[in-house]
Design a protein around this nucleic acid. Structure first.
Length: 509
RNA sequence: GGGGGCGUAGUUAAGAUCGGUUAUAACGCCGGCCUGUCACGCCGGAGGUCGCGAGUUCAAGUCUCGUCGCUCCCGCCA
């Protein structure tokens, strides 16, 4: 035992005295390229190059272990509820609609390619036709799109599908799965049932389909209040079918004129031209709009936004989508600045009733909001030929802390409706047959009503560990350009390998 | 495809507004000293393509342009 006066309570091992009987060096170690301690930051390139060392950091160890526990919790839950883990192909067929595919050229079929799956979507539906009425898989998915802090080119889904179910069945069973997950991994009991919100409500109140409900500042439409005013920005916006929306920030916020001006920069990325403001003071309104708006209109706005003296309203006039996107971003920005988000709070909810289709300006046609196998709401089906944009789908997302952690839908299970939807997105019968013939065939053999959902294991783990980057919950992640610093992938291959595949790259690469 | 931030010893940072002698510090590394250390201490030392390339200038880490890498965001991600 170490002498009493030499205990060091500030160290984890400060009470321990080691008595050496024998000492052997098992392997010598070089000096690490950087300090491997939490709190000591190194550049991302360096960390990724020596990922095997970086993973020694206590925080990363903790994240990776927690991820393992999360996957285990999900497996135990699904196993005990009769779900069967079935593997699906990784070398599969490229599908139109959706993300860019990662392609794998075939040696045996020169000029043809496999694609890595964006998700096992079609296979899990086919498993329902096969009679495996409860399927799950924790599986890699691949999407060749530009990355973000919560997106990697390969990521892991908790993929689930069930037969003879309706939306509520899937929501209920997976909600319990997530509640279990939080309890078993971090000891947090999420309040149940999760709040449910329609897509329309989410857009109206939060300007986004993945609202962060850990704080207030809901959006309000004040178009009717400012309609008919002299202010040209409002008049022209409303005349062109746009909206004027706002949210109120409670005092004390301490916003200076400079702060208020800076908000226009925040929303610029989302297309809004600027942010207007109006502060309620003891004796009236102070505002960038005072010259243009009568006091009665200010009062009506204050009432709608439930404002007290000192509170300030932030206002945007723009086309509806622009106003929503801008206010949603501004709301998050303001909440972050004012510290309104409790880092230890978790707010989980369901968003339902997504639209089935939306207009794509790029493709000049309607495209699926979720995917083309999503079932329309039966009540809305008659609208499909006449007013397809109005048709709601049986799709749903789970949102936690403003992050979309899962999404799914009840699927189309009859060939007739599937054909109608393909038609609506401009997928001709012949083309549909070439691309999805196997699905259309399968639906003709008594496919049961079915539906499912997929959760992002990476994002769930981020939330559980409070990780700021998806790279902190993946053992061997890639950079924002999908490059692996450690292995140097992607890399050049030999001319012989290319020749075998019948490939030849041009000079540009 | 577009916008923002960052890039200086092995590492993390300062120096950049205002161009000017030999680019500074901490940690790490190397050598020496120290018979109770635990963020040991003391003495000494090595270590730099200031991401890269042009340009302006008598002179560039510093100014200009381009480019590469990392990162955050928009578009994109059924």
């Amino acid at each position: 035992m170490r002498p009493e006066d030499m205990r060091n309570p500030s160290m984890l091992t400060g009470d321990v005295e080691v008595v050496v009987r024998e000492l052997a060096v098992l392997n010598e170690a070089k000096t690490p390229p950087y300090v491997l301690e939490d709190g000591v930051e190194a550049s991302d390139v360096l960390r990724l190059k020596y990922r095997y060392l970086d993973l020694r950091r206590p925080s990363l160890q903790r994240n990776i272990i927690l991820r393992h526990k999360a996957a285990g919790s999900v497996r135990r839950y699904l196993d005990s509820h009769g779900f069967i883990d079935v593997e699906t192909p990784v070398l599969t067929k490229s599908t139109p609609e959706g993300a860019r595919d990662y392609l794998v050229p075939s040696r045996v079929f020169p000029g043809k390619c496999y694609a890595l799956p964006q998700s096992p979507q079609l296979f899990k539906q086919l498993l329902m036709v096969s009679g495996f009425d409860r399927y799950y898989q924790i599986v890699k998915c691949f999407r060749d799109e530009d990355l973000r802090a919560d997106r990697q080119p390969e990521f892991t889904q908790i993929d689930i599908e069930m037969s003879f179910v309706e939306m509520d069945d899937i929501l209920n069973i997976t909600e319990t799965m997530i509640v279990n997950l939080f309890r078993e991994t971090i000891g947090v009991n999420l309040p149940v049932p999760f709040r449910r919100m329609t897509y329309e409500e989410a857009m109206e109140d939060y300007g986004t389909d993945r609202p962060d409900t850990r704080f207030g500042m809901k959006l309000k439409d004040i178009s009717d209040i400012v309609a008919g005013s002299d202010f040209r920005v409002f008049a022209s916006t409303l005349a062109e079918g746009g909206v004027v929306k706002a949210f109120a920030v409670k005092a004390p916020h301490g916003f200076s004129r400079k702060d208020l001006d800076s908000f226009s920069d925040v929303v610029a990325d989302f297309g809004a031209k600027g942010v207007l403001w109006a502060r309620l003071e003891g004796d009236g309104w102070k505002s960038s709009l005072s010259k243009f708006l009568q006091a009665s209109r200010f009062d009506a706005m204050g009432q709608r936004l439930d404002m007290k003296p000192g509170d300030i309203a932030l206002i945007i006039a723009a086309p509806k989508n622009t106003a929503n996107a801008s206010l949603s971003a501004l709301r998050l920005h303001v909440a972050g600045r004012l510290g309104l988000i409790d880092p230890n709070a978790f707010s989980a909810l369901w968003v339902t009733d997504f639209p089935l289709l939306e207009w794509s300006e790029e493709d000049k046609r309607l495209v699926s909001v979720h995917h083309p196998f999503t079932a329309p709401m039966p009540d809305d089906l008659p609208l499909l030929p006449s007013d397809p944009g109005k048709v709601r789908s049986q799709a749903y997302d789970m949102v936690i802390n403003g992050s979309e952690v899962g999404g799914g839908s009840i699927r189309i299970h009859t060939p007739e409706i599937q054909k109608q939807v393909f038609e609506a997105i401009g997928l001709g019968e012949e083309e549909a047959r070439i691309k999805f013939g196997f699905l259309l065939d399968a639906l003709q053999y008594g496919a049961p009503p079915h539906g499912g959902i997929a959760f992002g294991l990476d994002r769930l783990t981020m939330i559980l560990t409070h990780a700021a980057s998806i790279r902190d919950v993946i053992a061997f992640p890639k950079t924002q350009k999908a490059y692996c610093v450690m292995t140097d992938a992607p890399s050049e291959v030999s001319p012989a390998q290319l020749a075998e595949l019948g490939l030849k790259y041009g000079k540009e690469g």
